[in-house]
């Protein structure tokens, strides 16, 4: 979980600022149709709820919120509205309001996983890491199909709570690897990040080897390992890893060597080689 200002918020603002040149599109049409219905039946709570969700899908958070509140004012009582409203508050960075909505939902249904997942996010943003961890653990325990993100997010909460809790974060990642499979790339990558924080050279080196093992192509991970070893002033080992990176690069089919990313990687490899020779 990254600090909150995300790109969707940025573009959300952009949308508001941009003139609406194009008034078409599935959602636009459906919103317009719903608005007509509301004009004909202005006290119909369901219609406001429906339009709110259309606005939400359109990532038009303010209009979504306005419709949800209007639906509630008119007596809409289904629990789902609390959840949707909370989602909108999360986008609007109104974490306290959002948390309140999740409580209203919990009063109706305390078992639903998705509400606990949402609460974990609110607690995290409100820096109540203990509660965020509890909510995450509930999700981990009760979700049938877990994704790597479930573990990564919880690991990040631990670290945010206290940078000394890297072992707890590692424990969670290892649990994820055990549950989902040791070849899951982003979990192995996250594990590397945590090991780098811990700074145990042997463990880090081993983790680079793990990443090398789960990938068909090795040039990038040998290079990453070489950079790490160079930073650790292990020049001989760094040179060896860098040469392996180069050798792996040479094994690539020519058209794969010539992508921008690989051209850049090769320049990096050469650059490191120069540094190691100087």
């Amino acid at each position: 979980m990254k600090p909150f200002l995300n790109i969707s918020l940025f573009f959300g603002i952009l949308i508001v600022l941009l003139p609406r040149i194009y008034a078409h599109g599935g959602l636009d049409e459906r919103i317009a149709a719903k608005t007509k219905e509301i004009e004909a039946d202005p006290t119909n709570q369901q219609l406001y709820f429906d339009r709110g969700y259309l606005h939400q899908q359109h990532e038009d958070w303010d209009n979504a919120l306005a419709d949800y509140i209007q639906a509630k004012n008119l007596g809409f009582r289904d629990k789902i509205i609390h959840f949707r409203q909370a989602e909108v508050y999360l986008e609007l960075a109104l974490f306290r309001s959002g948390l309140t909505c999740t409580k209203l939902y919990l009063n109706n249904d305390s078992l639903d996983i998705k509400i606990h997942k949402l609460r974990a996010k609110f607690f995290f943003q409100l820096m109540d890491y203990e509660q965020s961890i509890i909510a995450h653990c509930y999700v981990l325990k009760h979700t049938i199909d877990l994704r790597p993100e479930n573990y990564i997010e919880l690991g990040q909460v631990y670290l945010e709570k206290d940078s000394n809790l890297v072992d707890s974060a590692l424990y969670i990642i290892n649990k994820g690897l055990k549950q989902l499979g040791s070849q899951v790339f982003i979990l192995q990558q996250e594990k590397l990040n945590y090991l780098l924080i811990k700074g145990n050279q042997a463990a880090i080196s081993e983790q680079f080897d793990q990443l090398l093992a789960i990938n068909n192509r090795k040039e990038n991970w040998y290079y990453q390992k070489a950079v790490y070893l160079f930073e650790q002033k292990q020049y001989k080992e760094a040179l060896e890893a860098n040469q392996k990176a180069k050798a792996a690069f040479e094994q690539l089919k020519p058209h794969l060597q010539q992508t921008k990313a690989m051209m850049y990687l090769l320049a990096n490899i050469h650059s490191l080689e120069q540094k190691l020779q100087d």
Binding site: D145, R147, P148, E149, G176, L180, G181, Q183, V184, F185, I186, L187, I214, N215
Partner: peptide
Amino acid sequence: GSASGTEA
């Protein structure tokens, strides 16, 4: 391909 750990 690389294991994503998810069907998403």
